[in-house]
Design a protein around this nucleic acid. Structure first.
Length: 272
DNA sequence: ACTGGATCCTGACTGC
DNA sequence: TGCAGTCAGGATCCAG
């Protein structure tokens, strides 16, 4: 599910209801996520005030005095604001109950998501410390950076773009969309793409992500924001999931291929 | 160091 | 209707 726009949509949705509130209870119905939910989570979170809700890559960070709760939504996760006493569904694995009577409810059918706790600086956590730059950070993420980083790499451009060491937050949907917007074929060898074309790619990544955030993200199946509403960017997708349908720019049928075990979509005319 | 493949899990969908 | 196979927004781990 969630790439950067969906995680950022979630962050913006929950922040006003979560920041400044105190945790009164943590209910773990099923702690079997990507990694087991820490057994001491209820212990350490209870009574803590959530001071800020931040995002790094596809992780959400709920900061407290005692430490930080790190949330990843995996492929099918969502975080919603619900009344604390509302009935939980089959895949509603964890509730963080707040003193407002609202609970932050983690639903994750496939259980690829994670809840991690760190007492230290979250950016130094093993899961976060080696991540590449944020795509919306113009200082760190620019054409020169991608050009320099890609030299000598034979990897397909799309896989290079989806590697969180290269840049974070760009998953399977937005990689395909950004490459289409930049006119670049996903199968190009990353190391043979020119500096100018990387400049274009950076601009496209940024533009696509920002439009997706503005639309509240993309809902293919599971994604809902903090209020349970889907995102509407699916209506604006130009190539993702549109095999054999006409390219919205030139009308040529969209092609699908597999790169790194992921479906990839492109227009053979617009993307060279 | 880089790359591709297998893997975790559940659910939806397709074709026989 | 049932059953097997395929695929799905992510990221880690491992072998070559």
């Amino acid at each position: 599910m969630p790439e950067l726009p969906e995680v950022e949509t979630t962050r913006r949705g929950i922040e006003p209801h979560v920041a400044g509130r105190c945790v009164t209870a943590v209910q773990v119905r099923d702690g079997r996520l990507r990694w087991p939910v820490p057994a001491e989570l209820g212990e350490v979170l209870r009574g803590q005030r959530i001071e800020a809700v931040q995002r790094r890559a596809k992780y959400l960070l709920l900061r407290t005095q005692a430490g930080t709760l790190i949330v990843h939504l995996g492929m099918s996760g969502s975080l919603r604001l619900v009344a604390a006493d509302s009935a939980a569904g089959r895949h509603d694995h964890v509730d963080i109950v707040l003193d407002s009577g609202i609970a932050l409810r983690l639903r994750d059918p496939r259980r690829f998501g994670a809840l991690l706790w760190t007492c230290g600086e979250p950016f130094e956590h093993a899961r976060l410390r080696d991540l590449g730059p944020e795509p919306l950070d113009a200082e760190q993420f620019n054409g020169n950076y991608l050009y320099a980083r890609s030299r000598g790499r034979r990897q397909a451009l799309k896989n290079f773009l989806m590697d969180a060491h290269t840049v974070v937050g760009v998953g399977n949907i937005y990689a395909s969309e950004a490459l289409h917007a930049a006119g670049l074929r996903p199968s190009l060898a990353a190391g043979r793409v020119s500096r100018l074309r990387y400049e274009r790619l950076v601009a496209s990544v940024r533009e696509v992500l920002q439009r997706a955030i503005a639309a509240g993200g993309t809902t293919l199946r599971d994604f809902v924001d903090g209020d349970g509403q889907p995102g509407y960017f699916a209506q604006q997708l130009r190539v993702y999931g549109r095999t054999h349908q006409p390219c919205p720019v030139c009308g040529t049928p969209i092609r699908q291929l597999r790169l790194g075990q992921r479906s990839s979509f492109y227009c053979p005319r617009c993307q060279k």
